[in-house]
Amino acid sequence: MDKLAKQLRADAERIEVTVSDELDRRINASLRAVEPVEQVPRTAKPPFFWLASTLTGVAAAVAVIAIVNWQSPDEQTSATPVNFVAAVPTIDLKAESAMLTGPLQDELDKLQSDLKKAEEKVKRDIGL
């Protein structure tokens, strides 16, 4: 610990505070009068919900494929179609992407929050 850190620690300890009996009573009384807010348990979805949503998804995909392919031959472009799927190298991601991107997302959120705060401060400073 360097000199400044030691000094700051010592100075913080020199700030004498005591919680008075009156404040102690007040806090205890108010804590006993408070009921913790119950966390609403997540209700489990019925099994047919997942089946229904899967079927809806499959039906939507089939509909999109049918619409895309239901074109007359003269509307089709003559250019040689490029197989993008084959062109793009496949990356075999074993790790869960959420685990990899989670900290970055947190950092991004915080940076955005910094930016917002700075923006508000500037607005406040210029009296907007």
């Binding site: 919680v19 404040l23 007040r26 806090i27 108010s30 804590l31 408070v34 009921e35 913790p36 807010v37 119950e38 966390q39």
Partner: peptide, 18 residues
């Protein structure tokens, strides 16, 4: 500061589940 302490502890207990 005393009021803020009391409010803090009440809010903490109220939302302890979070």
């Amino acid at each position: 500061a005393e009021d803020a302490l009391q409010d803090t502890l009440i809010a903490a207990f109220r939302y302890i589940h979070s």
